[in-house]
Lab assay of single mutants.
Amino acid sequence: KTVHVNGVQYDFDNPEQAERFAKEMAKKAGLQIQFHGDQIKIE
């Protein structure tokens, strides 16, 4: 899974790890999470 945070890309082999990371980042920055198939976007 790939997580995009403000244009920066983070790759994870483990989907659960990717989602946990995305939730942490979104919570910290007060941003929205969008799921697009294999990609998670935080903007």
Rank of each mutant, 00 (worst) to 15 (best):
A29L: 15
P15I: 12
A26V: 04
E43P: 09
V8T: 06
R20L: 14
K41G: 08
E16C: 14
R20A: 14
E16V: 06
D38G: 10
R20W: 10
E19K: 07
Q39L: 13
K28Q: 12
Q39I: 14
H36F: 13
P15G: 06
D11Y: 15
E16W: 09
K23M: 08
Q9K: 11
L31P: 01
P15V: 12
N6R: 01
G37C: 02
E43D: 10
A18L: 02
Q17A: 13
Q39P: 08
A22T: 02
G37D: 09
V8R: 06
E24G: 00
Q17K: 05
I33P: 06
Q34R: 07
E43M: 09
A18W: 04
G7D: 03
A22G: 01
G37K: 08
K41H: 14
D11E: 10
V5G: 01
P15K: 11
A29K: 10
D11A: 10
Q32A: 09
Q17G: 03
M25D: 02
E19A: 09
Q32Y: 06
K41P: 06
K41V: 14
E43Q: 10
V8Y: 08
F12D: 00
P15M: 10
Q9W: 08
P15F: 12
A29I: 10
Q17M: 10
D13Y: 02
D13L: 07
E43S: 08
G37S: 08
K41W: 15
Q32K: 10
P15A: 13
L31D: 04
V3L: 04
Q9P: 08
A22E: 06
R20N: 11
M25L: 13
A29Q: 13
V8L: 07
R20V: 10
R20Y: 11
I42Q: 04
N14I: 04
D11H: 15
N14R: 04
F21V: 02
A18C: 04
I33F: 04
K1M: 14
I42G: 08
V5K: 01
F35D: 07
V5F: 15
K28M: 11
D38W: 08
V8D: 03
Q17P: 00
V3E: 01
G37V: 06
N14W: 04
Q39Y: 14
K1S: 12
K1A: 11
I40L: 09
D38Y: 07
D11C: 15
D11P: 03
D11N: 12
A18P: 00
K27C: 15
Q17E: 15
G37Y: 08
F21K: 00
A26W: 02
F35K: 05
H36V: 13
G37R: 04
Q39M: 13
D11L: 12
I40W: 08
H36S: 10
A26T: 02
V5I: 12
V5Y: 15
L31N: 09
I40S: 05
I42E: 05
E43T: 10
V8C: 15
Q34I: 14
Y10L: 02
G7W: 02
Q9E: 05
K41D: 07
Q32C: 14
Y10A: 00
K28W: 12
A26R: 03
V3G: 01
K23Q: 13
F12V: 00
E24K: 04
Q34P: 04
E19Y: 15
V3R: 00
L31C: 14
D11Q: 13
K27G: 13
M25N: 02
G7P: 01
I33S: 05
F21E: 02
E16M: 07
F21L: 01
K27S: 13
P15C: 11
Y10W: 06
H36I: 13
P15Q: 12
G30T: 04
E19I: 15
E19C: 15
Q32N: 09
Q17W: 06
K23L: 14
T2K: 03
T2P: 03
G30A: 07
K23E: 13
V5P: 01
F21S: 00
K28H: 12
H4V: 15
G7R: 01
K27M: 14
F21Y: 03
D13W: 02
E16A: 09
V3D: 01
H4G: 02
A26M: 04
A29C: 15
I40M: 07
G7Q: 01
G30V: 04
D13P: 07
V3H: 03
I42M: 08
A29F: 15
K27L: 15
A26S: 06
D38H: 08
Q32S: 13
F12Q: 01
I33K: 03
D38T: 10
N14H: 07
A22V: 10
G30I: 03
E16R: 05
V5S: 01
E43C: 15
T2N: 02
Q17T: 08
T2H: 07
